[in-house]
Write a protein that binds this DNA or RNA. Structure first.
Lengths: 241, 241
DNA sequence: CCAAAAGTGTTGTATCTACACCCATGT
DNA sequence: ACATGGGTGTAGATACAACACTTTTGG
């Protein structure tokens, strides 16, 4: 057996939708390298620990949620020889989707964790585009190759919304069609027609199933509440513009 | 840094279409563990070698082709603690697509490599389904977790044929629409209407571009020859039944 | 001439988009 | 009453499946 010395880690791209915006959980690094930069949460795989178990453990640590029931999937593995200046570290990236948490990020360790607007990180940073008055976040440089990992994970999420019921993973157990539409709009970054969206979702077999309850939490006429259906793929798929 | 002792390897799922069937390159293991079983070609990542470089090196070694221009993409990483009985080995799986080689598998090292029908490997093996008179191949048990890796890679290929021009990676530089259809039929395992397929492919922008040449190698009326277009995604996508 | 494969036209059906319109609540 | 969001109906455009039909070669 050929045991080249290397570290094996998992990095997590934890996404949520808050206030109509797609956000990612980032940690500000307190120590070099990349001290002061933002980074994806992650950690080393323990001996005899499965890769997904590592990711799920990190997810629980960072969000304070029991990771059961949360969506978690592997995205890709990054292993360029010098991606970490300290030595060879190969990292398996996972994508996690969580609903908008009522509780703030709790249980995270000493480092400061925050929800950061994904667009603020991924937008091209022309030197003159620095001042963005709306969000306050101006420029977010990620440590290591984490910008690429984030981009790959977000692209995965965008693509999977089309043909899978993944968007429900961003929602609480019971949700309205409008709230589900809000997820699509936030992740894709485009507005959708509320009426056509409603029809499409409710007519796609097993995408969502109605409960007997309604809510007025979004204002206006009471909306039917739904929970996830049993579908694993959507026929026909949802379509972006 | 946390250097747990482990081996890092890449495994290759090299697919081709021969005689209208989807086939995978497998190697018969000459030594334990799993001596005598079929396995995916693979090998350990060298110090300072990028993951994809490892995969491309293995691909060139096994097929005897220069790996340049061949399609190669990462599929997933497999790291269950006891997937290899010799110790902890984490493997990054890559999918490679090659055209039907005029030359047989050359340059492969001592172990015997063969093209094996993918269906013969992936079909469910109920104990009483062992005797399959049609294909002659009865039972192909793969070593390690390679059956799962193969299944994941094939599913990836099947899905990508829908929305990407990936099928052209199975074809020689110049090909007819029929040959391209043969790829879809082999990978998806279903027949397609030649007339609708022709229209669909030629009307999808930048999927294929016509050359000035024709061929009669498929018999019948001479067929227009095409080469790959510049599209990276297909609009509209190709559809399975 | 016939067989075989290439390629075009047509028709009915499903789906999408855009938008008019009505429904049920809070204030 | 009116603002707000929930939900249904409908018409034109687009795409699809099925299949009749014509074209161009080899034998």
């Amino acid at each position: 057996m050929d045991f080249v010395p290397l570290g094996l880690a998992t990095d997590l791209v934890i996404l949520t939708v808050r206030g109509g915006r797609l956000q990612v959980l980032l940690i500000r690094r307190g120590i070099p390298p990349y001290q002061g930069h933002w980074a994806l949460p992650g950690g080393f795989v323990r001996p005899d620990e499965d890769l997904e178990a590592t990711a799920r453990r990190e997810l629980a640590e960072e969000t304070g949620l029991s990771a059961e029931g949360l969506h978690l999937e592997q995205v890709a593995t990054y292993g360029a020889p010098h991606r970490d200046p300290r030595g060879r570290v190969v990292s398996v990236a996972y994508l996690a989707l969580v609903p908008d948490l009522p509780a703030p990020v709790a249980g995270s360790d000493a480092a400061s964790a925050s929800w950061i607007d994904v667009n603020a990180v991924l937008e091209e940073h022309a030197a003159d585009a620095v001042q963005d008055g709306r969000t306050g976040v101006r420029e977010v440089r990620l440590a290591f190759d984490h910008r690429r990992i984030l981009a790959d994970a977000v692209e995965r999420a965008r693509a999977k919304l089309e043909y899978s019921p993944l968007a429900t993973a961003f929602c609480p157990p019971e949700f309205t069609i409008s709230e589900l539409r809000g997820v699509y709009e936030a992740v894709w970054g485009i507005p959708l027609d509320p009426r056509n969206f409603h029809r499409k979702v409710t007519r796609t077999p097993e995408f969502v199933t109605p409960t007997s309850a309604t809510t007025t939490r979004d204002g206006g006429r009471p909306a039917q509440l739904f929970h996830r259906g049993t579908a694993t793929t959507l026929h026909p798929p949802m379509t972006r513009a």
